[in-house]
Amino acid sequence: MVIEDPKTNKLIEVEKLPDGTYKVTIYDKKTGEKKTITMSKKDLEKLLKAL
């Protein structure tokens, strides 16, 4: 799943891993910076609600 946040000009890509956690990659379209973090479903839901 890919989500675009027009306010921050970032793309957020979410991928479910076999162990039940989620790999979240955040791309900054302005700088080209890429950050990848792994989080639980509960933390991911908090992140998505904040957008």
Rank of each mutant, 00 (worst) to 15 (best):
V14T: 09
K30T: 15
K7Y: 15
L51F: 08
M39R: 01
K30D: 10
G20Q: 14
E45I: 07
K49L: 14
K49V: 11
M1G: 14
D43Q: 07
V2T: 09
K29Y: 10
K29C: 11
L11M: 14
K46C: 15
K10L: 05
E13L: 05
K46S: 14
I37N: 13
M39T: 04
K7D: 14
M1E: 13
M39V: 09
K16P: 14
K35N: 09
E13K: 05
D19C: 08
D43E: 12
K41Y: 08
I37L: 10
D5W: 02
K42S: 12
L48N: 02
E15N: 08
E15V: 10
G32L: 09
G20A: 13
L51I: 03
K29H: 14
T21E: 10
K46I: 15
K41L: 14
L48S: 01
I3S: 07
K41S: 10
T8H: 10
S40H: 12
L11Q: 14
K10P: 05
T21S: 14
D28P: 01
P18M: 07
D5Q: 01
K35H: 14
L47P: 00
T21D: 11
K34D: 06
K29T: 15
T38Q: 13
K16E: 06
K30V: 11
T38K: 08
I12P: 02
K41Q: 12
T8E: 11
L44I: 08
M39D: 00
Y27R: 02
T25P: 00
V2F: 00
E4Y: 05
K29F: 09
P6H: 06
E15W: 11
E13M: 09
K29G: 05
E4G: 00
Y27S: 12
G20K: 03
D5E: 02
D5N: 01
A50W: 03
Y22D: 00
K49M: 11
L44A: 05
T25K: 07
Y22K: 00
G32V: 00
T38V: 03
K10H: 09
I3A: 03
Y22I: 04
V14K: 01
E13W: 13
K30Y: 10
I12D: 02
K16A: 15
L48D: 04
I12V: 08
K42E: 15
K34P: 01
K16F: 12
A50N: 15
G20S: 10
T21C: 15
Y27D: 11
T36P: 02
D5T: 01
N9A: 09
K23Y: 06
K29L: 12
E45H: 06
D5G: 00
E15P: 00
D5L: 02
K30N: 11
P18R: 05
E15T: 13
V24H: 00
I26K: 04
I3R: 00
K30P: 15
A50D: 15
P18T: 13
D43L: 01
K10A: 10
G32E: 11
K23S: 08
K49P: 15
T36H: 09
K16V: 14
T38R: 06
Y27H: 13
D28S: 05
G32D: 12
D19P: 02
K49G: 14
L47T: 04
I37S: 13
T25W: 07
K7I: 11
A50E: 15
I12S: 02
K35V: 14
V14Q: 01
P18N: 10
E15Y: 11
D43Y: 03
N9D: 14
M39S: 10
P6M: 05
P6Q: 13
T38L: 12
L17A: 12
I12K: 01
T36D: 11
T38W: 07
D43P: 01
P6F: 07
K49E: 15
D19F: 06
D19Y: 02
D28W: 01
Y22E: 00
K23L: 07
K41I: 10
G20Y: 08
E45A: 08
I26E: 15
V14R: 01
I12M: 03
I26L: 04
Y27L: 03
K29V: 08
E33Q: 03
S40F: 05
T38E: 09
M1Q: 06
D43W: 02
V24Q: 00
N9G: 12
D43I: 02
I12F: 11
T36L: 08
P6G: 13
V24K: 00
E33I: 10
L11F: 03
L48I: 07
T8P: 07
N9E: 09
